[in-house]
Design a binder for these strands. Sequence first.
DNA 1: AATGAATGAGCCTTCATTCAT
DNA 2: GATGAATGAAGGCTCATTCAT
Lengths: 203, 203, 203, 203
Amino acid sequence: MNEMPAKLQARAERKNAKRDVKKRQIAESAILALKELGYAHTSLRDIADKSDMSLGMLHYYFDDRTDLIIYCVTIYKEDFVSDITAALEKANGRAEVIDAFSEALVTSIFDHEMTHRLWYDIRTQAMFDATFRPVVSEIEQKLIGIVRAAFEKAGHTEVTNVELSYALLDGVFRFLMQGQIGPKPKERAELLATFRALLDQFL
Amino acid sequence: MNEMPAKLQARAERKNAKRDVKKRQIAESAILALKELGYAHTSLRDIADKSDMSLGMLHYYFDDRTDLIIYCVTIYKEDFVSDITAALEKANGRAEVIDAFSEALVTSIFDHEMTHRLWYDIRTQAMFDATFRPVVSEIEQKLIGIVRAAFEKAGHTEVTNVELSYALLDGVFRFLMQGQIGPKPKERAELLATFRALLDQFL
Amino acid sequence: MNEMPAKLQARAERKNAKRDVKKRQIAESAILALKELGYAHTSLRDIADKSDMSLGMLHYYFDDRTDLIIYCVTIYKEDFVSDITAALEKANGRAEVIDAFSEALVTSIFDHEMTHRLWYDIRTQAMFDATFRPVVSEIEQKLIGIVRAAFEKAGHTEVTNVELSYALLDGVFRFLMQGQIGPKPKERAELLATFRALLDQFL
Amino acid sequence: MNEMPAKLQARAERKNAKRDVKKRQIAESAILALKELGYAHTSLRDIADKSDMSLGMLHYYFDDRTDLIIYCVTIYKEDFVSDITAALEKANGRAEVIDAFSEALVTSIFDHEMTHRLWYDIRTQAMFDATFRPVVSEIEQKLIGIVRAAFEKAGHTEVTNVELSYALLDGVFRFLMQGQIGPKPKERAELLATFRALLDQFL
DNA sequence: AATGAATGAGCCTTCATTCAT
DNA sequence: GATGAATGAAGGCTCATTCAT
């Protein structure tokens, strides 16, 4: 008697799962376009063209341009956070944490420069468009969480001012990353040294 | 024989000066609109409406939407830099510099929140649109210059890593400023204490 | 030799009957949406969502959006006509007919306001889209038939100008019904008195 | 000292007047398309194409598709009301009023069939879309005013139930007009006789 | 028999830019 | 010098319809 509902529910779940897979697939294509052109200059048509999707499909899976972009940024968060977290996990003791953290940050600058560009773009948009604020805020909390984790792993028992440490670290990260876009990008080693010195002072 | 050219040149200069006055006048009106709506959501019509200018005039004085915006950001720079510079000028000795600098930064957060928002917006656009890079870079140099000046006034004879100090300070500034936009803005005193502690550590 | 065809035919008819049941079921759901939003603003997705039907099913049973809507209006006709006819059936003599007719019309305004709104919508569309004309015309003939029946029941042996009487009654009906949508709907009693007076003059 | 403001005001008025002329011009083109295709099937592109206007111009003069359509209907009102009013003006005494009124109505059916079609369309839309209600209501008041004027001209000192008379007349008008769209349009004389008989009974 | 994913044409609207005056 | 009317390309979004499953 209750078998059918169970079956139906199972089917609905399978469908939802499938839908989520597709959404992520679309979002990943969208990110490619957004990373390149930026929030302001990426139209849904651009996204549809760059991937092999029809314009209609974008709206079939997402309510809105905004909805799609928020989804994209959410994915970014997951990737970046899990990257850094994984890197920190293996580290034991202050020295190793500084090493691993610096290493991970620099690697991310080199490998995901464009993704970070997008993140800074959306974060700035949030200053003007309240719609973006919840996601941005949520992500920023995760990033602060990473810094806190680093502190704890480094042996600090009582961590204060994590937010400030994040802000400061983010300022440097952004500055260095932006420098890599310009005409005179720096060597990997130099960036690494900078982060090391900074973390050595703060952590 | 060379009298006429001189006269003509004088007239041309007068003309140019007059034109510059007008351009600045327009730009100041434009800034009002840009601060409110942000780069992505401010149309030339918005600007024309907010001021008492015709749409045509905007293009009469500026080649381009971009041209206008760059001009606006340039003006911003002058104002902000001269504000901070003026504040630092009166300070003597490390303690006074820390006081004056913190004070000036916090004041600017409260009085010019919207202007900074615009600055961060344009700076982010520059990551995607190379047209903005020269201005942004130029302004950032000036800002670094301020930090250097602060170091020198504070008694440092040999200043290294000013850029990094700027980046770090900018990160904190941006973080605090962004927090003021949200639902729980902080007290003036708290922001002041934060900057003081930070400068005390670095300067 | 002709047994099989008979069997086949029977099966085909059963199939058709089943199909008709389903079509009616779909149409009734569709009417709910159409009544609320109107012809111009009701998409097939609206209909599918409001009921528990898939979008594909709509096209499986109906050729076309238009096809579906025509079917809906046809159902409306049957309901309204049978309502009024039933009401008139019991009435004997002119006075009772006037009573019953007025009563039925006012009741319909109150109970089926939205349905009438839809009818007027489709009837208007027919002025522009010839596809709708046959149904609209057919329904209007039925409505005229009702008026004729009323005349006859009221004792008129030779009824002339039924069409005109219908038109005139319809004008009043529409006017009153539309008034009920506005900010100052009238009391039941008032509408009733209006119809009574009108029918008293004409019937 | 107050000459300049006067001048400026004069110029502003001239400009406004010019703008109004242009708006009317556009609206008249739009009406041509609307009359033919109906509200639901006339896109702004249709309108722009049918006339020699750019799509942008439509939005330069009107806020909205709705804004434009409301303007069109307003113009219709003015024309129709002034037509009928002019016709009634010359009439003296009941008989002449009946003559003139019937004549004017029939003429309007023949000459402005499409315009009335549009009016009925918009009036029906108003049942679903509240935006249209104010205009529709305003126009309907004017039409009721015409009926009242006819009553008065016909010698009635105390006119009651004008609204009802309007509703009833409108019902007949709509029915006859719609009949003209179909395959068997009637002769002018027949329509005339119908209105005459109707007015003879009511007026 | 039924589903719903996918399509693409079309809609309304915005906007930087041009140009006649 | 200055205006604002006019343009047309592009953007976000809706929707009837098709089709593989």
